[in-house]
């Protein structure tokens, strides 16, 4: 049962991911992105990471996507116009993409270790307790530094977006 489910959700994730790029209206792209997030959550669940799956749904598919859609609505962004692409992009873009994907899948197929296969549901340690513990011991410094990262992002957004008050 696990493998067909995995294949279904993985296929949905990839299809939605491609759709994010292909679609020309930002709202359609955003909704496809929700599809990606949702199917990733299902994959986490299959592996046994219940908490991570829940967080994925709540934070990404919920909060972050709401912000995405909100910003798109606020900007009233319409479908993007097709801009003229330069000839190297038109000529080489698709072949290079195929080459990169082909190379990566070849490497995974040929070299990834096949001995210890993924066992669905075997991952048991991703609970809130474990994550919290790791976050405040081993990953304390990255955790704290992320707050600097967020602070700088907020400050940057304010600098670039605020109106001058004369």
């Amino acid at each position: 049962m696990d493998v067909p489910l995995f294949l279904i959700f993985a296929a949905i994730a990839v299809a939605c991911g491609v759709n994010v790029v292909v679609q020309r209206h930002p709202i359609t792209s955003a909704i496809s992105l929700i599809g990606v997030m949702g199917s990733l959550a299902a994959l986490y669940l299959l592996l046994g990471g219940e908490f991570i799956a829940a967080v994925q749904v709540v934070v990404y598919a919920g909060a972050i996507m709401v912000l995405f859609v909100f910003v798109i609505m606020l900007l009233n962004a319409g479908a993007e116009g097709r801009s003229g692409r330069s000839w190297p992009v038109r000529l080489l873009g698709i072949p290079f993409l195929v080459l990169l994907l082909g190379l990566l899948s070849f490497v995974v197929q040929a070299y990834a270790p096949k001995t210890d296969r993924v066992v669905f549901g075997a991952f048991t340690s991703g609970g809130p307790r474990d994550i919290g513990k790791l976050l405040f011991t081993e990953y304390l410094l990255p955790f704290e530094l992320t707050s600097v990262l967020i602070l700088i992002a907020i400050a940057g957004a304010v600098v670039l977006a605020r109106k001058e008050i004369d």
Binding site: L145, V148, L149, I152, A153, G156, V159
Partner: peptide, 28 residues
């Protein structure tokens, strides 16, 4: 701060966060 973290980072996560702090500030 970001660049200083990058200088001392010994872990790919730290490298990434330091790089992002430095880069985002520079973009702005």
């Amino acid at each position: 701060v970001g660049q200083s973290v990058m200088a001392a980072a010994n872990e790919l996560i730290m490298i990434f966060i330091g790089l992002e702090i430095s880069s985002i500030a520079t973009y702005v």
